[in-house]
Write a protein that binds this DNA or RNA. Structure first.
Lengths: 211, 211
DNA sequence: AAGATATTGCAAATATTTTTCACAATTTCT
DNA sequence: AGAAATTGTGAAAAATATTTGCAATATCTT
């Protein structure tokens, strides 16, 4: 869709830039230089300029970047200009917390449907989100044209649920399951493995008390 | 502490290997080859051998790896052989879910103390974990000698709380805050920015419908 | 017990990704 | 008009990660 391939590392920084730019806007700053940004977000200024340059010439030489138009630009890039509906699959422990989690700080992401096998909570509304029984996963996803899903089911059923979700048209999965699910290659999976994060952290602590 | 620098990519795969090895053990497999592992965890077999070799010669040529002793080894490496006590700072929405989250699948991580500013929940026990008022953060961390903290406070206070935690002796922080906190360089921070993950995912979806 | 087969360990090569340098081009500021 | 600031970017460098290729060594088969 976009012309160029933006490096992963860059893409991961975009939300960070975006967030800080909004802080600047709130503080009524109208311009900002890469050096200034650099200090705030702790990324080298050359890296910032390089990152921005993937999207074309966003700044003005000798001046810096105009906060407002930069925000406007990133808003579009990051899809902040329209609502993305997201499904939450698995309303257990973590799932429930995510229902309340303020994903839509900037108003662009909304969990619009949730699914669970538990008969007791199916067909209720939790935190303003309707919970459907798992049997309706595919049809609801299709009907509501939801392309992004958050997966917080037990890992035993993760693959099976994923297949179902993909069949329902999902193209992006935020996977909280420790299982590495298999998907067609037009589907993107972002893994968030909390146990793994914690273990990796502890590993690094024990093994390099000096980096 | 350890002799060698293990690549980040390798370290991140260790818990994945470990998990799968346990599955093998449960299935009463006594040996496994890198090729076999490869298929299961979806990592090239050469990469697996490379990864393992950072820790010395763990396998036997012509035979493969002995599941049990490999597990034993990784258990140690990953600190699964002893309990790591972890503090949870901020028992809000997400924090509460993490209290119930089954971090200690393999019995090595335990949230042994939680902290919150909210007077109502301070000095109670939630999900078996004592909640202390935030004012006791530093002293309790010191007293209980906790070195790892999970940070789930509002980002406005993240830096301040971090400073306090570091003063209390914390060496590793799993940071769920969108703020990139500043810490002394002997402290390691692992960021888990859920909003960011989701935004990055959506970004990739919109911009590369084909990878 | 000999030969065939399997499989690791590892040095080196290669590939990929990310960061940084360095400076011309351009703009603003005084 | 000249000084100062700051971007944009080619190219170099650095960092990180993967893959190759094969000798060494073990097990398996007959």
């Amino acid at each position: 869709m976009t012309e160029q391939k933006i490096p992963r590392a860059t893409a991961k920084r975009l939300p960070i830039y975006y967030r800080y730019l909004n802080i600047l806007l709130d503080a009524d700053k109208t311009r900002v230089s890469s050096t200034e940004l650099s200090e705030a977000v702790k990324v080298d200024s050359a890296t910032i300029r390089r990152d921005f340059s993937y999207f074309g010439a966003l700044g003005k030489r000798g001046y810096g970047y105009d906060v407002e138009s930069l925000i406007k630009f990133f808003r579009k890039i990051l899809n902040q200009d329209r609502l993305t509906n997201v499904a939450l699959i698995g309303v257990g422990n973590l799932g429930h917390a995510l229902l309340n989690f303020n994903f839509h700080q900037d108003g662009n992401v909304r969990i619009s449907a949730a699914f669970d096998v538990n008969e007791k909570i199916a067909n209720t509304i939790q935190s303003g989100v309707p919970i459907y029984p798992m049997t309706e996963l595919r049809t609801q996803l299709e009907e509501q044209q939801i392309q992004v899903a958050i997966l917080t089911v037990p890992s035993e059923v993760a693959q099976q649920v994923t297949d179902e979700a993909v069949a329902g048209g999902v193209k992006g999965i935020l996977n909280f399951t420790p299982l590495r699910v298999t998907v067609p290659k037009d589907v993107r999976v972002q893994n968030v493995d909390l146990t793994n994060e914690l273990q990796t952290l502890i590993y690094f602590l024990e093994h390099y008390n000096k980096e």
